[in-house]
Simulated assay, not measured.
Amino acid sequence: MLLATDEIEDLLSELINTRQANNSRRLLLCRVSENLLRELTPSNVDAEFQQAITLLDKKERSTSSNYKTKKVLLEVPPDLEFMCNLSGHIDNLSIYRKNRSDQVVQMTEQLNQAMGLPVDPVQLQAASLMHDVGMSFIPHNIFNKEGALSKEETRKIQEHVVIGSQFLLRFGGWDEAARMVLDHHERYDGSGYPNGVSGQQIHQGARMLSIVDTFCSITTERSDRTFKKSLLSAISEINANSDTQFDPEMVQVFNDVVRKIMMKPNP
């Protein structure tokens, strides 16, 4: 099943990207599937499945041998490129985070522009990419837990802002971005974490990041929701928490940003 699923994913990806798919691979998958449907009996289950695995696995080895191994160089990539790669790995930890980092980067940039660029755009981009990198150090049983978290599990989740900010400090030259990451779960009324600061004490970039991160979380399909919430539902929830969780003036500007997104014609 895993081999067949991989083959289907490869064919679909090829079809989407090139508008055509390898017909011999498609026929092989069809032939293997039809053979199992036609020939499978209780007495020959093992033999038939082994034959199917051999055919699919043989295809996989033969095609993979055509690819030349890419050399891995011992070099330090540019900071933002490395941050982008890290954030991509975080998004791949869960099917509910697909392209999440890209969305956060784009929307924080739009909000910053709408407010007249009060925050350095490059520092804000770094913070947007790195704000959830600390989540990769959270145990998977906590990261993917659907029920309520215990106090200890909540404490471990909250540690991700410290881990992410320390990463940025280690890079050097990203002190402002590190502060944004540290503050992005602080609440405007002072009930957030890790330091319980409030109002203007919270870095302005972190206040932007808090709104955008919440918005992207609401509009992203999650295991506890069977459908993707609309933009209107997300903005309604954010406005309901204005002056408690979010900066009220910033929420008003964000409303305009989302309104422009909703009015933008589809390509």
Rank of each mutant, 00 (worst) to 15 (best):
219 T>S: 08
121 P>F: 08
256 D>G: 14
203 H>G: 11
169 L>K: 05
211 I>M: 08
197 V>R: 02
238 I>C: 00
245 Q>K: 15
160 H>R: 11
258 V>H: 00
260 K>H: 06
64 S>C: 05
111 L>I: 11
33 S>Y: 07
186 E>Y: 00
188 Y>L: 01
190 G>E: 05
49 F>C: 09
266 N>A: 14
101 S>Y: 10
254 F>M: 06
267 P>K: 03
239 N>D: 07
212 V>Q: 00
166 Q>Y: 07
267 P>A: 03
49 F>E: 06
168 L>Q: 00
255 N>V: 11
220 T>R: 08
189 D>G: 00
11 L>Y: 02
56 L>A: 01
64 S>T: 07
44 N>C: 07
148 A>G: 06
141 N>I: 05
19 R>D: 15
92 N>P: 01
151 K>V: 15
99 N>P: 02
154 T>D: 15
199 G>Y: 06
75 E>S: 07
113 Q>D: 12
159 E>C: 13
117 L>N: 15
191 S>I: 02
216 C>T: 09
224 D>P: 07
87 S>A: 14
237 E>A: 09
62 S>G: 03
71 K>A: 10
197 V>K: 11
226 T>E: 11
50 Q>R: 15
134 G>I: 04
205 G>S: 12
260 K>D: 09
101 S>P: 10
34 E>C: 03
187 R>D: 00
55 L>Y: 04
23 N>C: 11
43 S>D: 15
230 S>N: 03
52 A>G: 01
29 L>E: 01
148 A>P: 08
10 D>Y: 07
62 S>A: 12
21 A>R: 03
176 E>G: 02
117 L>G: 09
1 M>T: 14
7 E>C: 10
57 D>L: 12
58 K>D: 06
42 P>K: 05
197 V>A: 03
36 L>V: 10
48 E>S: 06
93 L>C: 10
87 S>N: 02
250 M>P: 01
125 Q>K: 15
207 R>Y: 05
181 V>M: 02
108 T>D: 08
76 V>D: 03
136 S>W: 03
120 D>L: 11
147 G>K: 13
3 L>G: 03
173 G>D: 02
94 S>N: 13
226 T>S: 14
150 S>A: 10
51 Q>N: 08
96 Y>P: 03
80 L>Q: 03
91 D>K: 06
18 T>Y: 13
224 D>F: 15
197 V>F: 07
31 R>W: 04
84 C>G: 02
74 L>E: 07
132 D>M: 11
262 M>N: 09
165 S>T: 01
23 N>F: 07
90 I>K: 09
95 I>H: 12
25 R>A: 10
236 S>T: 07
171 F>L: 15
72 V>K: 04
237 E>Q: 11
231 L>H: 10
100 R>S: 10
68 K>Q: 04
